[in-house]
C-alpha cells in the first residue's frame, strides 16, 4: 500500500491537484494496480538489456534547412491569454 505522502508527492510532481476524496481513492487504486505490477519485480532479469525501441534504426537526422513555420496569429490563436504578441502566464511565486 503506498502511503498518503507518496500520493501527495507524486501528485505535486505531476502538477495534479487532487481533492481529499480523490487522494484517498487514488491511494487505494494505485496500491491495487501496483500489486499486479509487482509480478515483474519478482522476475529474474539479470543480464537482460532494456528495450527502448523495438525498431533497430539509428541516425535519423534532418538537414539544417529552414522550413516555413506558423504565422504569429496561428501560433497564438489557441492561447488563453495573449499579451502584445506573447503568451501570457500567471505570476510565479
Amino acid at each position: 500500500m503506498i502511503d498518503e505522502s507518496t500520493v501527495n508527492h507524486v501528485a505535486r510532481l505531476a502538477r495534479l491537484r487532487l481533492t481529499p476524496d480523490e487522494q484517498q481513492v487514488m491511494r487505494e487504486e494505485l496500491s491495487g494496480i501496483l500489486e499486479h505490477i509487482d509480478a515483474i519485480r519478482a522476475m529474474d532479469l539479470d543480464g537482460v538489456e532494456p528495450t527502448t525501441h523495438v525498431i533497430a534504426v539509428e541516425n535519423v537526422l534532418r538537414p539544417d534547412v529552414p522550413r516555413p513555420g506558423l504565422s504569429r496569429d496561428d501560433a497564438l490563436r489557441e492561447a488563453a491569454d495573449v499579451v502584445d504578441g506573447s503568451f501570457g502566464v500567471p505570476r510565479m511565486d
Partner: peptide, 28 residues
C-alpha cells in the same frame, strides 16, 4: 492567479479520473 495554481487546477480539473490515475502511476 499564480503559476502553480495554473498547472495544478487546470490539470486537476480538466483531466478525467483514468488519465489522472495513469499519470500518477507513470510519475510514480
Amino acid at each position: 492567479d499564480n503559476l502553480l495554481d495554473q498547472y495544478e487546477i487546470t490539470r486537476g480539473d480538466l483531466f478525467g479520473p483514468e488519465v489522472k490515475r495513469r499519470i500518477m502511476l507513470g510519475t510514480f
